[in-house]
């Protein structure tokens, strides 16, 4: 873990959303991200996997400072960006970027593609008109939307979902950011287009040495597109490690359940029931005490209900947060 330059360090990051039920009632907090720590190396691609509502998006947006962190630290290129004001954030905005889930909603429908991709350049006062146009064309050809002139003059509604997502990728990359967070970039696309788009994204990430956080709920795709895996549950990271290691030998009961739940195409599937825990992700306002997975965990022990599980190093790299693996 020591080799390679760190680009991003996240320390005990928390993001709570305040919810007020009534005008005079006491506010309650949705603990969407509740103490996340990890580091990302330059040019590395990691996957963040978790169920819906586990806080993946919140984590991504908090890192990008689209949300104000409640607690913790975000250090980007040795600079603490946790509480920078919006003026001093401009350089951070330029060096980071976000790819969203919904390609239809991610682009302003009333602007032509050229202008959509040009916007970040205009905002960051980059180049003159012709230079910007050249960069727009370069970005379009990088995502293989050719002939670029044709696509540049189109409007979003004239493109398919896959093409829109590639425009969004072009926009995310036009400022040549060093860190890109892709939040379920293909989950709304068609199966066949998904792989195509992910492959494109992975190639761009590798050739441009972009540090990449791939947020997804689709565990099966992660091993094709990143090196390390983080499993998130109820605002916390439960297990991390090399993707193949984790998938082959999941240590956390939740990771195990996740893997069990995912079918590979197989005619035998229909003959058996999947051995998955019942229930659904917990309420984040009053999360379960101790281990957050304990209400659903088949191996739950007494201690799990009261005390937070320890962080236990995995054999090669990564960790697991579970009492089962605690070294006594």
């Amino acid at each position: 873990m020591s080799e390679g330059e760190m680009i991003l360090t996240v320390e005990d990051l928390r993001k709570f959303f305040e919810l007020r039920k009534g005008l005079f009632s006491k506010p309650v907090y949705v603990k969407a991200v509740d103490g996340v720590t990890f580091t990302l190396k330059k040019g590395e691609s990691i996957s963040l996997v978790g169920e819906s509502g586990s806080g993946k998006t919140t984590l991504g947006k908090t890192i990008l400072r689209l949300y104000e962190p409640t607690k913790g630290k975000i250090i980007f290129k040795d600079k603490d960006v946790t509480h920078l004001s919006s003026e001093s954030l401009m350089w951070y905005r330029r060096e980071t970027s976000l790819i969203q889930q919904d390609p239809y909603g991610a682009l302003p429908s009333f602007l032509p593609i050229r202008r959509i991709i040009e916007e970040p350049l205009i905002i960051h006062k980059i180049g003159d008109k012709s230079e910007r146009l050249k960069r727009v064309y370069d970005a379009l050809s990088a995502v293989r939307l050719t002939p670029v002139e044709d696509f540049a003059s189109k409007y979003p509604h004239m493109l398919s979902g896959g093409q829109l997502q590639r425009v969004a990728i072009a926009r995310a990359l036009v400022l040549e950011p060093e860190l890109v967070i892709a939040d379920e970039p293909v989950s709304m696309l068609d199966a066949s287009v998904r792989i195509e788009t992910l492959t494109l994204l992975r190639n761009l990430q590798e050739t441009r040495k972009i540090s990449f956080i791939y947020i997804t709920h689709d565990l099966a795709t992660t091993k094709y597109f990143s090196e390390r895996l983080f499993i998130m549950y109820a605002g916390k990271i439960l297990e991390s490690g090399n993707i193949r290691d984790v998938i082959m030998k999941p240590l956390h009961p939740y990771t195990q359940a996740l893997i069990k739940a995912i079918p590979d195409p197989d005619p035998e599937n229909r003959k058996v029931l999947r051995d998955v825990p019942p229930g659904e992700p917990p309420n984040l306002i009053h999360p379960p005490s101790g281990c957050r997975f304990h209400p659903r965990c088949p191996y739950v022990m007494d201690i799990c209900r009261v005390e937070e599980p320890p962080i236990v190093e995995r054999e090669k790299e990564g960790f697991v947060a579970c009492w089962l693996h605690a070294k006594h």
Binding site: I195, D218, A220, T221, K223, I259, D264, P265, P267
Partner: peptide
């Protein structure tokens, strides 16, 4: 079908399915 689809489209579709337990070359 799940062992070997016959139609070229079905074959391609199957090849684009990422699998968790086995490694395979993804295609689209």
């Amino acid at each position: 079908f799940y062992v070997k689809p016959s139609h070229p489209y079905a074959e391609k579709l199957m090849a684009s399915v990422p699998t968790l337990r086995t490694d395979k070359q993804l295609d689209f």
